[in-house]
Lab assay of single mutants.
Amino acid sequence: KWEEIAERLREEFNINPEEAREAVEKAGGNEEEARRIVKK
Rank of each mutant, 00 (worst) to 15 (best):
A6W: 09
E4V: 10
K39I: 15
E18P: 04
A23L: 06
I15C: 07
E33S: 07
N16R: 09
A6K: 05
E3R: 13
R8L: 06
E19W: 11
F13S: 02
N16M: 14
E32D: 12
V24S: 02
K1L: 14
R35W: 10
K26T: 04
P17M: 15
K39P: 03
E18V: 09
A20D: 01
N14A: 05
G29D: 02
A23M: 06
V24E: 00
A20K: 00
E33V: 14
E18D: 12
A27G: 04
K40R: 11
N14E: 05
N16T: 15
R35M: 05
K40I: 13
E25P: 00
G29S: 01
A23P: 00
V24Q: 00
E3S: 14
E12M: 07
R8Q: 06
E22A: 05
R35L: 05
W2T: 08
E4M: 11
N14C: 08
V24Y: 03
A6F: 05
I15M: 06
L9N: 00
G29P: 02
E7M: 13
E3L: 13
A23C: 04
I37H: 07
R21D: 05
K39S: 14
A20W: 02
R35G: 03
F13V: 02
E19S: 09
I15L: 11
R8S: 06
A23S: 04
R21A: 10
N30E: 06
E18G: 10
E18W: 11
A34V: 03
E31G: 05
A23H: 03
F13T: 03
I15A: 04
L9S: 01
K1A: 15
E11A: 15
R35I: 10
A6R: 04
G29N: 03
K26A: 14
E7Q: 14
P17E: 14
K26I: 12
G29A: 02
E4S: 09
K1M: 11
A34N: 00
R21L: 13
G28L: 12
E33I: 10
E19F: 13
R36P: 02
E12A: 07
N14I: 04
A27N: 00
I5Y: 02
E3Y: 08
E31F: 12
G28P: 00
E3T: 11
E25N: 09
E22G: 09
E19K: 08
